[in-house]
């Protein structure tokens, strides 16, 4: 167990973080190079004011027409994404590991709250799964990759939840948890999870076009 755990939490985690940061950097720089090479005009339309105006509307629940039209989805997707990002970053056990390895630490969530947030992520993932399977307009455009990325995202939380409660084979679950977290990190830049990286850019461009050229709201 020592060997396996040390492997997943050591070299594998290094690789995952390298792929995540390196990959994210590569994808964004690559995009900017491509814009510069083939669609340079995009830069001339970009506007900080209209980009931020658009982004702010879309990152606030119910601030856009479509969020208001889909109240259930809006509540769930915001809760899901907030918990998805905040839980791993502010989880006590994770911060303790950062402290032990690099002597850096920051504010942490109470474990009970983190537990609830994990459940929110898992329930959110289940909601998205059900939505994919049951809503015709979603099902129609769903491919295998959609289930794969949903699984990639849900896995660290399911295993983390089981590990925290020490259900089933704890040491094994714990190792799977680390593995699942690493897979998710590494997958972000190279799958459609990259919407985490690109959505601010696509939003900003559409916001700039609507604000600067079209004089209309894009929300």
């Amino acid at each position: 167990m020592h060997t396996f755990y040390n492997f997943v939490s050591g070299p594998l985690t290094w690789i995952a973080f390298l792929l995540f940061f390196g990959g994210s950097f590569y994808r964004i720089v690559n995009m900017l190079f491509l814009v510069n090479k083939k669609e340079k005009f995009i830069f001339s339309y970009m506007s900080w004011r209209y980009s931020l105006r658009s982004i702010f509307h879309w990152i606030i629940p119910f601030a856009t027409t479509n969020w208001r039209r889909q109240p259930v989805l809006t509540v769930i997707t915001f809760a899901f994404h907030i918990c998805l990002m905040a839980t791993p970053i502010f989880l006590l056990s994770h911060v303790i590991l950062w402290d032990e390895s690099f002597s850096i630490s920051w504010w942490t969530l109470p474990d009970v709250l983190a537990d609830v947030m994990t459940i929110v992520v898992i329930l959110g993932a289940i909601y998205f799964l059900v939505r994919r399977l049951s809503q015709p307009e979603v099902k129609y455009v769903t491919s295998a990759s959609d289930y794969v990325i949903l699984t990639i995202v849900a896995a660290p939380f399911v295993t983390g939840f089981l590990a925290y409660h020490q259900w089933f084979a704890y040491p094994l679950i714990m190792c799977l948890h680390v593995l699942a977290g690493n897979i998710m990190l590494a997958a972000i830049p190279f799958t459609r999870l990259s919407h985490m990286l690109f959505s601010p850019f696509t939003r900003a461009y559409m916001g700039s076009e609507f604000g600067g050229v079209r004089n209309a709201r894009d929300w």
Binding site: Y5, A163, Q166, Y170, P171, M174
Partner: peptide, 13 residues
């Protein structure tokens, strides 16, 4: 390379 190293191995629920 011996003994518990995972959170839950010491902080048993």
């Amino acid at each position: 390379k011996k003994g518990p190293i995972l959170c839950g191995e010491c902080h048993v629920k």
